[in-house]
Amino acid sequence: MKTKSIILLIFLAMLLLAAAVFRLLITRDVDGSLLFELPLDKYFIYRLVPMSAALIVGSALGVSGMGLQVLLRNPLASPWILGLSSGAGLGVMATMYAEHTFEASFFGGQSLGAVVGALFSLFLVFSLSRRRGGIDPMTMVLVGVVISVLCGAGIMIFQHLVPMGLRGSFSTWLMGSLPEVESWLRLGILGLLVLIGIFLIALWGPTLDAACLSDDEAKSVGVDLAKIRRRLFLTSSMLAAIGVILAGPIAFVGLIAPHGARLLMRCSHRTLTIATALVGALLLLVADDIRQLIDFGTGRLPIGIVTSIIGGLVFLILLLRGRGRV
């Protein structure tokens, strides 16, 4: 790893630490004024949990997006484009609807629903994209968009079916939000899975570099393309599903974080994976910090709205500058 890359990674880690400390300190008083102080011990957990969730979700979505962009050789690829996030969303919606209809809690609840939904989308996209024994990246994008649209329609159907009173919680979930109450065991397991996913993709970094050549060239230098595509697709899907399980549909982080990391450093995918994880976590933490600062008198904004505004603007700037390259 080059010295410049190491310095940039340390710089990113320090920014992340600063954003995390800021998140722990910032709060609103009952009269709506902003306070910068550590909360009482009994309230500390309500800041520590969303901060930890932001780290896990941001890094998971960022690295998932990077993996998919390499997999598809498409700078616009993200868990959303491939229908993974909307599949997970549909699973969550179906679980919420079933729990409401049968007035019961199911084993695994919405988490299981998200995993099943993501895996179902994954299976559909994967099996419908196969051509001549391999996966065709362009077909995969098109199939992903179709699956995403169909899952979106499914989500709207569930929204339509539930009573008016429940539509609010459906809508809130759809906008994306970081949990303030979550078991440490669940956070720990999901965080560990994200770390494993990031480690694996970083480990495959040199192969990801070579996979940036055309199919024929990549094969000729010794890349087993079918194998790396399978691995990337599965790992990226797992990371995207974890993001949805913890925070619902969070837009743009998976798209913007890899581009942000590439703008900061030109390096191999091994280093880039670590940088993308840091940028993704930083993006989500900063978005969470920003929403603490905004007060419309109607409660804090869902974080999905903040990431959409930041991500959309950054993405537009990237496009206009012509820097949207993988």
Partner: peptide
């Protein structure tokens, strides 16, 4: 190949 492709800013 006749036309080489690289989808990264290497």
């Amino acid at each position: 190949p006749s036309v080489a492709e690289v989808s990264s800013s290497f």
